[in-house]
Simulated assay, not measured.
Amino acid sequence: MGTLTANQTKIAYETSGSGETGTVILIRGQGTQMTHWPESFYQAFTYQGFLTVRFDNRDTGLSEKFDHISDRELEILKQTALAGKEISPPYTLYDMALDVIGLMDGLGIPSAHIVGISMGGYISQIIAAKYASRVLTMTSIMSGSGSLDPRLMERLWLTRKSRESFIEEWVEYVQQFGSKKYFEGDDHSRQQAAAAYDRCYSPDGANRQLFAIASMKNGKELAKSITIPTLVVHGAGDLLLPPSRGRETAKLIPGATFKLIDGMGHDIPPGLGKPLASVVLEHIQSTIKFNS
């Protein structure tokens, strides 16, 4: 693992692969760390000769935290957002997109295939729209393009818990919102949650990221401006963010392809990693063949 300063923010990252066929940058969702990417997913790109870059978004994992904004200030922001009023978040998704550009600069990567999951899908769309020269293809997974439903904010809001309570909450999350066809069992969920907690437990960071999502107001217009070859992937069984959100995004982005995956919910368990990567690789390789 390495760290570098991107957009004036310390970002922790890991890479794998030779890079002979290009670079794939993977962007995680709200509150999750780069370790949540299953090896079966990212190694599929590595085996095809890509340099695969995984990293912790700001406010998660081993990247820089914005803990100077916490407690009462976060609660006020939450109540303001739930009331339907505009908020001034600690940072925006545009700031997080600049983190990715800064990471690319620091690693000497002029352009890459960008893949984002959930919140990472929103960030990917910003990069594709605003920094098109740095993007070869874009894939948005289990994400959307419109504003965040306030009811979803309530569901995603985190309160500080003990290690044991955090683990059991994650088990319940996977049971309810996970990919049922690829379910690995409660013991796997417990092991994953324990590893995440021990590496870095930052519920305030996840909540600050939530404000960045909630303050995104022009997502649909942004999507319409994307000219990069785009794949939108969604799980047929996603109960957190319904497939209609993915279909909408694909319709907004000119020429985008939409892929619905049976049995996929709002996570990527190890058993789903390889088939999901195959879908993304097909998209990437089709553009390489087209341009060669």
Rank of each mutant, 00 (worst) to 15 (best):
F66Q: 11
G17N: 01
L62V: 12
D67Q: 09
E75D: 08
R58E: 04
T46N: 11
T15D: 03
A44S: 14
Q30T: 15
S70A: 12
Q30N: 15
G61L: 01
T9L: 05
D56G: 12
G61R: 01
L62H: 02
E73G: 00
I27H: 05
M34S: 10
F41A: 09
L26D: 02
L26V: 02
V24Q: 02
D59H: 08
F41S: 12
E39I: 14
L51T: 13
S70L: 06
D71E: 06
M34E: 04
A6T: 13
F55V: 09
A44Q: 13
H36T: 15
S70F: 05
T15C: 01
P38H: 03
G19W: 07
L26Y: 02
G19S: 03
G29V: 09
S16E: 15
D59R: 03
Q48P: 07
R28W: 03
T23S: 03
E73S: 13
E64C: 07
Q48L: 14
D56H: 08
P38Q: 10
K10F: 03
V24F: 05
G17C: 01
E20W: 02
D56F: 08
T46R: 15
I69S: 03
E39G: 09
G61M: 05
T9N: 07
Q48D: 12
Y47P: 04
N57Y: 07
T9V: 11
L62T: 11
G31F: 07
K10I: 10
T52Y: 13
N57H: 11
Q43T: 10
I27E: 08
T15H: 00
F55P: 04
T9D: 07
S70R: 12
R54I: 06
F66G: 10
M34A: 05
I27V: 14
Q30Y: 03
F45D: 09
T35H: 08
K65I: 02
Q43C: 06
E20A: 08
L51R: 14
F55N: 10
E39S: 13
E20Y: 07
T35C: 02
E20S: 15
A44D: 13
T21P: 00
T35V: 12
H68G: 00
S18L: 06
I11L: 13
F50M: 04
T35Y: 03
Q48G: 04
F55Q: 09
E73Y: 10
Y42K: 14
R54M: 08
K10E: 12
N7I: 05
A12R: 10
A12S: 12
I69L: 06
E75S: 00
G61S: 06
V53K: 13
G17M: 03
Q33L: 11
I69P: 02
A12C: 13
Q30S: 10
Q48K: 12
S16F: 04
D56Q: 05
D67E: 11
S63A: 06
G31C: 04
K65P: 13
V53Q: 08
R28Y: 08
D59E: 14
L74M: 07
R54H: 07
T60Y: 11
E14G: 06
G22M: 09
H68C: 00
F66P: 00
V24H: 05
K65H: 14
G22N: 12
W37S: 12
P38G: 02
L62D: 07
